[in-house]
Amino acid sequence: MAHAAAIGDNRSGMPQRRLPSAKKSDRQFKWLLVTPAVLLILAISIYPLVFSIWVLFVNYDFQIPGHAFVGLKNFQQVVTDPVFRYSLWVTVALTVANVAIEFLLGLGIAMLLAKSFRGRGLIISIIIVPLFISPVIVGQAWALLLQRPFGPTNYLLSQLLGHEVTIGWLTEFPFNFIALVVADVWQWTPFMFVILLAGLTAIPPHVYEAAELDGVGGWQVFRHITVPHIAPMMMLAITFRLLDAIRMFDTIFIMTGGGPGTQTYTTSFYLYTIGFAQFHLSRATAGAWIFLVLTLLVIVFLVRRLLKPEAK
């Protein structure tokens, strides 16, 4: 009891504010916290999207005054434009090539660096550098390396092959596509690498030790131990990369400008050109909606399935 007295029985120092309903204030509190973010997204992302539904059905074109109702004409113009359809194929082709190469290369490098050794930390730090560089600069850097006649690439190839090489890396098919893929692979292989490395290092070593004791080796270990363990990581990395790769724009803008002609038009680049170079805003919006719906399908089927188990 002596202790209690020492601590004091003075309750007057503690103001006791009583609010009528804790439940209600809690409920308000949690919604209050999300309000600013939700309002911002509504204003900058959702409202424009809704606004653009109106743009879809009128003529919003800086070259033609007024906003006359045109029905589905905008859609018709986009869908019948062979360049638009071609750009979808370019997008798919580049996306598949980029993501596949980045995945395989990233997985390979991650497996080489999965075990700890001296200098590994430094090597990883160097490998991830491209992730922090603007794609514009990546495009610029590869243009510097590849461009004829200034870049050193053709010179090095000439030395290697023993005859003169004069490839127009940014202007000749298929080298312009190769250049775009190389730049993208340079920037985003580290993305795959980092995620897959996290997956690989999370595999408990005793699993491998058990396999070793069982006399299982090499390819078998990879197929039956490594792959199942990092399969969720693989799915995640591929999905995230896929959804970013289909918007490819920056490196094309800097490296090929979509050229020669419209040969390297991705959908994003095509729509940008229609909208902001030719100012057919309604037509571009119609194309953007088609592209958006295609993307949403991918999101709903891939991302939702992917993130649900993680959210639990």
């Binding site: 202790h3 004091g8 003075n10 120092g13 103001p15």
Partner: peptide
Amino acid sequence: RKMPQPEIDSRVDAAATM
């Protein structure tokens, strides 16, 4: 609960001793 600092100190010390 906005208790004055000197009182906080003495109470904390008492509890710590205990």
